[in-house]
Nucleic acid binder design. Structure first.
Lengths: 145, 145
DNA sequence: ATACGACAGTATCACATGTGATGGTATCGA
DNA sequence: TCGATACCATCACATGTGATACTGTCGTAT
């Protein structure tokens, strides 16, 4: 599935981003496989840990998927016992999603599992270059205004 | 569709790559829309221009999609008159895909259309940083060996 | 008070994409 | 020459994803 090294031209950067993203996704997916979850499940868990109980609408906004996709992910998480939907007093339309103790446990296990892989991803970069890359990517991905 | 700025941790780099890649894809897709093709069509054209007539299996390897996907893309290109399947003398199993003059024409038009957008993508970076980013991404995406 | 628009969540559909099976051809070895 | 094996392109199918329509609830204004 690996692609060729791109040549120059206006598309070089895009192709590089694609390949780099693909590599990161592949490695992380592999890391999560033994835990029984996929990236998108974990992405939701991250938000739940950082923000506490969250409405599905906000989960969709925070992860970039749409509400239908979030519904399926939350369905999965609920089936696995990693999160629960709870009624919100005062607004019966919304159902807040809350992480369970099992979910927290798995989240921490995922952190531990991912750490060495994240290290290995940037192993070929010289000291400091990883931070440099993150800085450049941040400014590229979130241009001013 | 835009996601939140990622925090720190082992996943920051992956999330940044995702967001950066998404931005590049969005911009380029928009650039190709008036030409009537999509990114994956153009990706095949790039290979055809750079390497000349190419077997479908190699196209699949070069673009990262699978053989069935390549078949559908080549179907599209043939329908649009941008490429043709030609029998290969000496091996009747394979059909080499070759770009047509119309294909070359559209390829060059796409280059012209993409150039200013590629500039704009890196407009927020300081001089030289675009090359730096490309260099880092290359070493990240294609680790030694 | 009720009628209306806005919105959260759900269910359903259409479509795109990846995987396994099939047909046909070339290559190798006996 | 013939049979076995390898390989390419295609087809048919299953799976997953995004878009659409629907239900129930809330806020608001008349």
């Amino acid at each position: 599935m690996s692609t060729e090294k791109p040549s120059t031209g206006p598309f070089a950067l895009g192709l590089l981003l694609r390949q780099a993203h693909w590599r990161a996704v592949t490695v992380m997916t592999e890391a999560f496989r033994p835990l029984g979850i996929e990236l998108r499940h974990f992405a939701v868990l991250v938000v739940l840990v950082e923000q506490g109980p969250t409405v599905q609408r906000d989960l969709a906004a925070a992860t970039g998927s749409d509400k239908a996709g979030i519904m399926r992910v939350v369905d999965d998480l609920e089936r696995m016992g990693l999160a629960v939907r709870k009624a919100v007093p005062g607004d019966r339309r919304v159902r807040a999603v809350e992480i369970t103790p099992e979910g927290v446990e798995l989240f921490e296990a995922a952190q531990v599992a991912a750490e060495p892989l994240a290290e290995r991803l940037v192993a070929d970069l010289r000291p400091g270059e990883a931070e440099q890359l993150k800085d450049l990517l941040t400014r590229f991905a979130y241009p001013a205004e």
